[in-house]
């Protein structure tokens, strides 16, 4: 399993995968992609690492607890950001209330807190997939 070529290539390619993943997440409101796709791509980088080295090494990069925290925080962030709309006098998840600068359409800083939401989704998805994989890859599955 521990193939040197694989490990070296993985090490080289992982930053780019992650960068691409975050690009997909942050440009979710401008171009195809978004939290779901981006999160998966980010997660795949971790999976690649875990597969190229081994699961235990993967644990070190992304500990159980951290992924659990990120999972919860991502989802919480999404739900709580929704309340911002209510707080500003609009509906739940309302975005037109001027909480965050809506900016000019087509630029990165636009879309109010939608980038924030996609980020939340991305974090949630990435961490969920990572922990799911770890769970399945783990040798002793408790029944």
């Amino acid at each position: 399993m521990h193939d040197l070529v694989l490990q070296t290539v993985a090490k080289l390619i992982i930053p780019f995968i992650q960068l691409f993943g975050f690009y997909i997440i942050f440009f979710g409101h401008l171009s195809p992609g978004g939290g779901f796709a981006g999160g998966t791509i980010v997660a795949s980088s971790f999976i690649l690492y875990a597969l190229a080295y081994d699961v235990q090494a993967g644990f070190k990069r992304m500990p159980r607890l951290a992924s659990k925290w990120l999972e919860s925080m991502g989802a919480l962030l999404f739900v709580l950001v929704g309340f911002a709309g209510v707080a500003m006098g609009g509906s739940y998840l309302a975005n037109h209330t001027g909480l965050l600068d809506l900016g000019e359409a087509g630029t990165l800083i636009s879309g109010g807190f939608i980038p924030l939401l996609t980020l939340a989704v991305g974090v949630k998805v990435a961490s969920t997939i990572i922990s799911l994989l770890y769970h399945l890859l783990e040798e002793k599955t408790n029944v």
């Binding site: 779901f36 998805v125 799911l132 769970h135 399945l136 599955t141 029944v143």
Partner: peptide, 21 residues
């Protein structure tokens, strides 16, 4: 799609449990 993936993941986890038993 996301739902489908989560359903798949969940059912696969159950398959592993069933296989263990």
């Amino acid at each position: 799609i996301v739902v489908a993936v989560s359903l798949t993941a969940f059912s696969l986890a159950m398959v592993v449990m069933l296989y263990k038993h």
